[in-house]
Nucleic acid binder design. Structure first.
Lengths: 101, 101
DNA sequence: TTACAATGTCGTCGAACGCTGACATTTTAG
DNA sequence: CTAAAATGTCAGCGTTCGACGACATTGTAA
């Protein structure tokens, strides 16, 4: 499953927790957080610390895999905003000299 | 690439940012955070808010995929073939009646 | 060399966080 | 049904975060 937002991740955690027949209290204990925090995370809390989130995922047997995103519709020219996934000619020229190693 | 710790994710972000020839300032602007925050994230800050982390990944074209972790090869007997690779008999018995819907 | 851009680090401060504890609601066991 | 467990929510409090500004360090271009 793809994870793009805190809400998606929260739903994922809840789903896996229930699959393992764990209650919030037990999961909280094994992760090392309070039960309320588990409640928040499952609701999709955006402010949850990355470290705790990863530990929670580990506690229920989920691993995350990072991949290059599929082409964001290469229609227009060089979109100035929102960081292209693809390198355009300008950035190549701009950074052409600073090839360090 | 697998992401298990904040440090791994930080290295991933840094790698992708450089691959796109972006400086910290530009990335920070497109994500909507301070440049210092980018520095911290790339160092593997564990306390970074999940929401900002996901937005950063999106800004450089990385998607996360969640998967069931492969168990450390439980040389047990009847290997379950279903979704859950390892649910022990106790948890099954304990939760056998709580079939909700 | 000098000059500039990118990066790393350090204070300060207001805002947000997580925890404890309690209580209300929902669900399950008997 | 009632009792207990699990879950959702709230208030208070100490801790930690991110933004901001400034400065040091590094690397590249002229």
């Amino acid at each position: 499953m793809r994870v793009r937002t805190p809400s998606e991740l929260g739903a994922l955690i809840r789903d896996y927790r229930m699959r393992h027949n764990l209650d919030q209290k037990s999961l909280a204990a094994s992760v090392g957080v309070s039960r309320q925090w588990i409640v928040e995370i499952e609701k999709g809390k955006a402010g949850a610390p990355l470290g705790l989130v990863l530990r929670t995922l580990g506690a229920i047997g989920i691993v995350l895999d990072a991949q290059q995103e599929t082409p964001p519709s290469p229609k227009g020219k060089n979109e100035s905003h929102g960081v292209d996934a693809y390198v355009d000619i300008n950035t190549i020229v701009a950074g052409a000299r600073k090839k360090k190693k």
